[in-house]
Design a protein around this nucleic acid. Structure first.
Lengths: 107, 107
DNA sequence: AGCATCGTACGACACCTATCGAACAATGTG
DNA sequence: CACATTGTTCGATAGGTGTCGTACGATGCT
């Protein structure tokens, strides 16, 4: 496969798209878990987030986060290393990530 | 008609729902206009936001914002007075409104 | 009363989305 | 090489969403 996906550049990150990516309890849970653990792979993230979703669904959610510019994904063997693009998000939507992570998610 | 709609209490405001309400360029534009002008009615808001949308569509968007707990709506004659629930939002999702309003919306 | 104005509600349409299972590709391990 | 592991992709399906036009209701004005 390729070495990386297409992820939006910092300038391409758009507020509505980011908000849309975060407007889902499952993705918020994934983001929360990711924030607590720093970086992780898909499988571990599924467990950490406490979500009961199929592999394909989690893969879909991570894709949405990635394509919105929220997360960065690297290929590591058969696994993926997912992390939050904190600096890029701070530049594109100042304060947003902190506000979202700060709120305890009462869905 | 009645005197007010059902709007969620401060405790009922949920992060995913608020994010979902904000995850639309039209609603962000309405919110931006509302923030600049303080409070307004539906018609004026449509003009101020620079949106080219039908009455029913704007009405729909304002309903989404209202039901998410983002805005408060009062009946004033045949018109409506719409305002942002700044305090409630700050209590439910600290920093979120400021972060969203702060970002210049490049949709 | 009659009419205009402001906004909501409804039905319709096209489109997007969350979810799943199954099939597939890539890599690591015996 | 055969097999297990990790994710992605595809097809399907059910349900949500943005948009519009039209019809309606409430209020104000003449």
């Amino acid at each position: 496969m390729q070495d990386e996906w297409h992820e939006p550049t910092r300038e391409e990150i758009s507020l509505p798209t980011v908000l849309g990516a975060l407007a889902d309890p499952a993705r918020l849970a994934l983001l929360q878990a990711l924030h607590e653990v720093g970086e992780s792979n898909c499988g571990a993230l599924t467990a950490l987030s406490g979500l009961d979703l199929s592999k394909s669904t989690v893969s879909h959610h991570l894709k949405v986060l990635r394509e919105a510019g929220v997360t960065h994904t690297q290929f590591v063997g058969t696994s993926r290393r997912v992390s939050i693009r904190q600096d890029d998000l701070e530049a594109a939507c100042p304060g947003l990530l902190h506000a979202v992570i700060g709120s305890h998610v009462h869905a």
